[in-house]
Design a protein around this nucleic acid. Sequence first.
DNA 1: GGTGAATCTTGACGGCGTCAAAATAGCACC
DNA 2: GGTGCTATTTTGACGCCGTCAAGATTCACC
Lengths: 202, 202
Amino acid sequence: MSRPARYHHGDLHDTLLREAGILLREQGVEGLSLRRLAERAGVSRTAPYHHFADKNALLCALAEQGFRRLDTMMGEVELDPADPEPGLRRFVRAYLRFASDDPEQYELMFGRTLWKSGRPGDELKGVAYGCFRHYLVRLRPLVSQGENEGAEPLRLAQASWATLHGLCRLLLDGIYLRREDMEAVSDQAVGLMLAALRPAWG
Amino acid sequence: MSRPARYHHGDLHDTLLREAGILLREQGVEGLSLRRLAERAGVSRTAPYHHFADKNALLCALAEQGFRRLDTMMGEVELDPADPEPGLRRFVRAYLRFASDDPEQYELMFGRTLWKSGRPGDELKGVAYGCFRHYLVRLRPLVSQGENEGAEPLRLAQASWATLHGLCRLLLDGIYLRREDMEAVSDQAVGLMLAALRPAWG
DNA sequence: GGTGAATCTTGACGGCGTCAAAATAGCACC
DNA sequence: GGTGCTATTTTGACGCCGTCAAGATTCACC
C-alpha cells in the first residue's frame, strides 16, 4: 500500500541510500544530484542533509557498500596454492565481472571523485584498505618462497591489483579496450600474474 | 607591455588553451570552469563559445595536447630488442613521470570526463589511438617469437598498458599506492612485463 | 500534557554551462 | 572614403546544482 504522505518519512536514511544506488547505476555520478534524489524519495530538497552531512558523505556511504561487496566476493573465490592457475583465472574473471556489473559503483569506489577531489571518510578508508589487505592475505600463499629473492608479496599484490584496476578502467571508460577483447586480455593478465608468482625468471 | 583592453582580443583561442592548461594543472578539472577561465583571459563569460563549441570541446583540445606530448615521449625512449630490460625500465619510469608531472592532465586524457560522460571528438580519438598504436609498434620487436605460442603482441600491449595505467591511477588518486612505494612497485611491473615477453613460461 | 530533540519545509545565495539577442570591430569591395 | 558582411564580444536570462538559515511539524520521553 502506498502510505499517505507523512511529514516524517520514517526510513529516509535507507531509502536515500537505496535510491542513490539505483540512480548511480542508471545515470552515473554525474546524474546523481541531491535534489533529484530527494525528489525520488518524495521529500524536499534539503531533507537529505539531516541524514548525511553533505553529498560527499552520501557518496562515501555508497562506496563503502561497494567495498563490502567486493570484500565478500574476494573471500568466495577458491585458491589452491598447489595449482594456482585455475584459481587465479577465476579471481580475475570475478573481479572484472564485479566491475562491469555496476561500472558506476566501481568508478565511485576507486575514482578521484572521492579520493582526490572529495574527502574519503575514515570509515571508507578503513573498508577500502581492509579490502586490499584481504587480497594480500589471499595472494600470499600462492607466492612460491622456495628460492630466496622470490617476489615480495606486497609488491606483487600492488602490481597485480594495478593490472586488474587498469584493465577495468580502460574497459569501463571505453579507451583502448573493447568488450570483446576482454577475455583474451584477461587471460594475458592471468599469464602475467602467474609468471610473477614463480621467482624463476632471472 | 599590457596592451589596452581591446574589444577584440586577437589571440583568444590560444590564450584560452594556455590558461586552461594552467588552471587544469593547478586546480584540476573541478576547478576549471569556463566562467573562471574567461575571467582569467580578461574576457566576458560567453566569449569562449566563439572559439570552442562547448566545454567538452575545450577539454578535448586540452587532452589532445597531452596525447601529442605522450606520443613524442614514447618515441624518445631507446629500446634494444637484444636486451629489453633496461629499455623497459626506462619506459616505465618515463610513463610514470609523465603521469605524475601533470596528474590532472593525465586524468583528463584517460578519465571518464571525456570518454564516458563526455563526447570525445574524432580528433581526440585519432591521436589517442595513434598513441597506443605507436606503443604497440615499439613493443613488438621486443616480443620473442622463437617458440610458437609466444605472447600475442597486441594482447601483451593491452595488458601491459593496463598495468601502467592502473599504477598511475592508484598512485594519482592516492589509493593503495604511496609515492615512496612507487619505485619498488614499478620495478615489479617491469618484472611482470619482462616475464611476459619470453614465451618460456608453460 | 508539556518539552526538547529530531525531522522536514520553504526561501535564499552563489556558482555553473549555455542559449538568444544586441553591440562592436575588422575587412573586403565599391 | 564609405558600405555592408562577418567574426567577435557583450549583456541578459534560464535552469540546474550544493548548501546554509530559519521556521514548521512531529516524535519520544518525563
